[in-house]
């Protein structure tokens, strides 16, 4: 009995250590995202974000996505719904998945021409069985999540309508009876 007990305890200690190491690794991957995949992420952004944003705009959105990943809080409470209620919390950080996806796309993104880059990203999304943009990035694929991050954002909405709607801003009531002003420059 004592041997079995010692065995169980040693396994528990090993697993605990592994989990702690794993937790530290995820934390580090989240905090330092995208680490050595920065070039791949920027190349991916050029493929999946609209050219209308321009180089600087794409860089700006990419950096906002990086900040989003770094600010992710695994386990944070989510809204518990209305009508159909359910207590939910945010899943694990998507950073490790993203790094894996970027590693898988790295060669195509950094060496191919525009068409082959698009084909590689399309193939990756097909392989991941992504059917639509998630409501908020969910870690299933970095390409879909980067698109969701931008296209579902207030800025993405403005670009689509070419108007300064500012959906997520506090804008005041005055003037709201007018159509929003045309977008100045790029969203």
């Amino acid at each position: 009995m004592s041997i079995r007990r010692r065995t169980i305890l040693s396994w528990a200690a090993y697993l605990g250590g592994a989990l702690r190491l794993s937790g530290v690794r995820v934390w580090a991957q989240t905090a330092n995202f995208p680490a050595n995949q920065d070039d791949a992420l920027r190349a991916l952004a050029v493929v999946v974000l609209p050219a209308e944003l321009g180089t600087a705009g794409i860089d700006q959105k990419t950096e906002a996505f990086v900040r989003w990943v770094r600010g992710y809080r695994a386990g944070a409470e989510m809204d518990h719904g209305y009508g159909a209620t359910r207590l939910r919390s945010k899943g694990a950080s998507p950073a490790p998945n993203y790094l894996r996806h970027l590693e898988g796309l790295r060669e195509a993104l950094l060496s191919g021409d525009a068409d082959s880059k698009r084909q590689a990203v399309t193939a990756a999304l097909e392989q991941a069985k992504i059917t639509d943009l998630p409501r908020t990035p969910d870690g299933r694929h970095v390409a879909a999540d980067l698109m969701a991050f931008y296209f579902r954002s207030s800025d993405g909405n403005d670009l689509c309508y070419r108007a300064a709607i500012g959906r997520d801003q506090c804008r005041g009531l005055d003037g709201s009876e007018q159509a929003p002003a045309p977008l100045k420059g790029r969203a």
């Binding site: 989003w68 809080r73 944070a76 989510m78 809204d79 518990h80 945010k90 997520d168």
Partner: peptide
């Protein structure tokens, strides 16, 4: 945080 992450 709600807008960005769908947190409560």
């Amino acid at each position: 945080r709600t807008i960005d992450y769908a947190e409560n």
